[in-house]
Design a binder for these strands. Structure first.
Lengths: 221, 221
DNA sequence: CCGCATCCTCATGGATACTG
DNA sequence: CAGTATCCATGAGGATGCGG
């Protein structure tokens, strides 16, 4: 029999006339914002999402994507190579609140990595968030390489931003373990400590420009 | 038998080495951020929270408060008048990401209020969020009165902020229905339309200063 | 393989009653 | 007033199936 369960589940609403509560109605369910975080650097395939978000059930991923699409946050694209999911312009604007929440959560990284999963892709949200307030003129570009994955951190007079799959590789590349990269950005390590640890290599001069110690700290808790 | 169910439920963690994911581990569960929103303007009693968050189950409220306290977001205070809950300094810093998410969700208010609940207290988060970017020099103070509840919106050169239970009432008070107040702030209504509707009274001159039409719109979707 | 849909089990949320 | 205790409904997690 051709029964097609459309599964148009209507998510539980808070029923409040409040922009914040209505935002949570759209993106407040479990896994939803993590899917958006994955898509922030660029479109992804279903299976890429599934493997990057270790632990999400396949039916949940499908349902969240459907819900996000229905609400105009995510766009489902049929390309020659297959299906890909991308953020709509409105969905991409989640970047700001998410970066802010990541900054708020930075102290929670102090307990270390433990057995937690890590995807270098997540740095695209975390690094600009943690370095908010840092500016550079002339602009600085620094390659970051972790777990065999490369992204470029750019700092100009408007602040930091991250790019994945850049046109050209910057001349200076920092190669280090996730804890070191994140610790650096969060201020848990100074450039000198990191250099002394021998855990990464890079051009000290450029790094010192990019990561000044005297920025206002959002993580001094 | 004296069995005391401590109910130290350890909430499901995403298990990711990512500040954003860890933040969601702390405040990502259902109702949690709405509790924080309630506490942003100031401490509240258990029953106040319960009635303001219409629809939350009492056991859930108790459990969320316990979890927030255990994570250092909320502080439980025993005062002479009873128990009150307040945000810790770290918890209060959620103000920024929450305001940003509220701004993102502003377009969702366009569908109108419908049967949704409304608490004037929520304006303390919404109004500064929606008016982000508006400055005034010299500072402007405007009373807002809705549903028999008053707060003061202050705009100075640093931007807008809201106060509840202010020391003194400003000379100009805007008294209107929730939809009108929110619509005004979101840019859905102009001062002229609002005045023409006869739904509120106020000093047009001051209002025009406080709500300039030519600000950058975050709600043009 | 990729992109899901179904099924099953158990954890979490929601409603209500009750208690110090 | 400030919660606990209980019970039922719903959503999450995991395995598997299945058409393209």
């Amino acid at each position: 029999m051709e029964k097609v369960k459309q599964t148009v589940r209507t998510p539980r609403s808070y029923g409040q006339f409040c922009a914040f509560a209505r935002a949570l109605d759209v993106v407040g369910e479990r896994w939803t914002l993590l899917i958006v975080r994955e898509l922030l650097p660029g479109p992804m395939r279903y299976t890429e999402l599934k493997t990057s978000l270790a632990g999400i059930a396949t039916n949940l991923l499908a349902e969240r994507l459907r819900s996000l699409e229905a609400n105009g946050v995510v766009e489902r694209r049929l390309e020659q190579s297959g299906v890909s999911y991308a953020l709509t312009p409105w969905g991409a604007e989640l970047h700001e609140p998410m970066e802010a929440l990541g900054r708020w959560g930075a102290p929670l990284l102090e307990t270390g990595r433990g057995d937690d999963a890590f995807q270098p892709r997540w740095l695209a949200l975390a690094l600009p968030g943690l370095l908010r307030g840092v500016t550079a003129n002339p602009p600085v570009e620094l390659g970051i390489e972790t777990n065999g994955f490369a992204l470029v951190l750019r700092i100009d007079q408007d602040g930091p931003s991250a790019m994945i799959r850049p046109d050209r590789q910057p001349s200076t590349v920092l190669s280090a373990a996730p804890e070191v990269v994140v610790g650096l950005a969060a201020g848990g390590l100074t450039i000198d400590q990191a250099l002394a640890s021998g855990e990464f290599r890079g051009d000290r001069q450029v790094l010192s420009t990019a990561f000044p110690a005297e920025r206002e700290s959002a993580v001094d808790r």
